[in-house]
Design a binder for these strands. Structure first.
Length: 548
RNA sequence: GGCCCGUUGGUCAAGCGGUUAAGACUCCGCCCUCUCACGGCGGCGACAAGGGUUCGAUUCCCUUACGGGUCACCA
């Protein structure tokens, strides 16, 4: 019997399939020209990173805008990193930001699609079949090196300034015979299966990254591990087998993978697969002490996707922000196409920045404010209610009176120039506080004395009429101001300040403070209308009594 | 350290050999205005450094500096 065959049977006696079986089981996808098949392939660590969301988002947009497919594959080949409900957490997290999949895992155990299983731990047999095939062809071999041995050769290599790793002469089990392997296995030794790398250190490999452009690197010469000692594949091998069998056309992932592309390309080559196109995304950075660094899971709260949910950024706003980071001409497009769904935007990987973008919360806030300003009162209510149920008990209680809440949220909304002052839902309670509680400490402008303020309030209360309309209200206030010695408009006042005590703005500020406890609020008439006649009167009375 | 990648205002970024070097966010000023927010107008503010190539370099090449990534039986 052929030595390689003998080895293959020794290592994989249980494997009774051949690669062709899988080729027929997972046929090439029938899709229209230019359709992109891509995927999001996280480990179920239970933590959804902002960078992960970004990568998923890019994959989603690439697939959607090309008429392709987007699927979720779970990379759980490392049991140590797994977390309970890790899959669910990822699926739910992405879904809450509007990212859905055509195929892939739905929960820990369920999936949909024709190219599964979509969780690597369930694909063990597939990987082993392909490795067996490589062993048969003499392209892979079992390696019995211990951790100590590995560390030792590494040390030596570092000292001699050589490439660290198992390659060339350091690959001492490259030519092990089947009989020797059997003896070691029988003796209970652990082993991994390594690639017999056909790489040449003097040759270079070129490839085109869809984002970074042409890249040239030395060929891989390391005998990378294909199968770990527990029989599960490494990322490198799983990536190659899965993306081939799942017929992925574009691999979109973080650029920390760029250094292993030569290894991946070599693996595709030895397996006889056509490699996919690669698009490596630069990481999202964070500023620290004037420098840039990768957004860190440990140090930066905004690294966790949960952060945005807790703060109450609407998913749509985060989406808009991701779009502007991804394709910078999106903002222009959005301004010109305010109501179009973003799928209509011509999204392109080639428009992505090669350098890592700095996470900019000011920009997110601005985008979110604009986004929220376009929502209807009803939509705002739904969002806020939803958010408050989990994050703000008191606010949630207040929202029980929906009719009133809709009035509050409806103030200066739905107009050509809607208010733009809420960036996230955790600001809502404070922002709407005075609609629910009477202001206690009233601080009036310094240029108005207490007796003067009381006079203004008394006059206003006398003047204020339940039946006054929005159109009548302000002119009436102007007249009142004038009667009391204040200029009708700031302009008039500025022209001859010595003739007046102040202007109508001073008068309205006193009323504003009495009613809301603040000097800055939306339109006073609308606020009064929302509070109701009785409440307004009571607040005025309270303010007057405080001043006397 | 080897190997990759990157570097345009404080931030995100257009730009692909000849431009007064767009635009957005932030900040500042003015206007609008009962206050605030919005909106309008305007302002501050940049091609990392040095060599080439070229009639001409932000754009092309080299070197340096800085930043990032990678060099696992983790992904």
């Amino acid at each position: 019997m052929d030595e390689n065959l003998k080895m293959a049977e020794l290592l994989f006696p249980e494997v009774d399939t051949i690669p062709d079986d899988y080729e027929t089981k997972y046929p090439k996808r029938v899709l229209k020209e230019g359709a992109v098949v891509t995927r999001f392939a996280p480990s179920p660590t239970g933590f959804l990173h902002f960078g992960g969301l970004f990568a998923a988002f890019i994959g989603y947009m690439s697939a959607k805008t090309s008429g392709g497919k987007f699927y979720l594959r779970i990379e759980d080949t490392d049991k140590k990193r797994e977390v309970e409900n890790g899959v669910r957490l990822i699926v739910d997290g992405l879904e809450s930001f509007g990212i859905t999949f055509d195929e892939g895992m739905l929960s820990e155990t369920e999936e949909k699609g024709e190219y599964g299983p979509y969780i690597q731990s369930a694909r063990r047999g597939i990987y082993r079949c392909f490795v067996k095939d490589l062993v048969k062809k003499g392209l892979a071999y079992p390696c019995f090196m211990s951790e100590e041995e590995l560390a030792e050769i590494r040390q030596g290599q570092e000292k001699e300034k050589k490439l660290p790793g198992v390659w060339g002469e350091y690959a001492k089990y490259r030519d092990i015979t089947a009989d020797e392997a059997r003896a070691r296995i029988d003796a209970g030794e652990d082993y991994v299966v390594r690639l017999r790398s056909p790489g040449d250190a003097n040759k270079r490999i070129k490839f085109k990254d869809l984002i970074k452009g042409e890249i040239e690197m030395p060929e891989n010469i390391i005998d990378v591990v294909l199968l770990k000692k527990d029989g599960m594949p490494t990322y490198h091998f799983a990536h190659v087998v899965d993306d081939h069998l799942m017929r992925t056309t574009h691999v979109i992932r973080g650029d920390e993978w760029i250094a292993s592309v030569p290894t991946h390309l070599q693996l595709f080559y030895v397996c006889g697969f056509k490699p996919p196109k690669y698009a490596h995304i630069s990481p999202i950075m964070k500023e620290e002490n004037g420098g840039k660094r990768k957004l860190s899971k440990r140090k930066d709260p905004e690294a966790a996707v949960d952060f945005y949910k807790k703060a109450g950024y609407p998913a749509g706003a985060v989406w808009e922000y991701l779009m502007t980071i991804a394709n910078s001409d999106y903002e222009q497009w959005r301004m010109a196409n305010k109501n179009e769904p973003c799928e209509k935007f011509k999204f392109s990987l080639s428009k992505m920045s090669k350098a890592g973008a700095l996470f900019d919360i000011a920009k997110l806030n601005d985008i979110s404010k604009t986004y929220i300003s376009t929502l209807t009162a009803e939509q705002v209510y739904d969002y806020v209610k939803n958010w408050a149920e989990e994050n703000d008990y008191l606010l949630n209680e207040r929202l029980l009176n929906k009719e009133y809440a809709l009035k509050v949220f409806g103030i200066e909304r739905g107009t050509p120039k809607p208010r733009k002052d809420i960036a996230k839902w955790d600001e809502v309670r404070e922002y709407t506080e005075y609609f629910y509680t009477r202001p206690k400490e009233l601080v009036y402008p310094e240029n108005i004395s207490a007796s003067e303020a009381a006079e203004i309030l008394r006059e206003y209360k006398k003047e204020f009429d339940n039946s006054v309309t929005a159109e009548e209200w302000f002119p009436k206030l102007r007249d009142m101001a004038e009667r009391m010695g204040y200029a009708k408009t700031p302009k008039v006042y500025k022209a001859s300040p010595e003739e007046y005590k102040g202007h109508v703005g001073d008068v309205s500020t006193v009323i504003r403070v009495a009613l809301t406890g603040r000097t800055n609020t939306p339109d006073l008439y609308l606020i009064s209308e929302t509070l109701g006649y009785n409440e307004v009167c009571e607040r005025l009375d309270f303010a007057i009594s405080e001043l006397s």
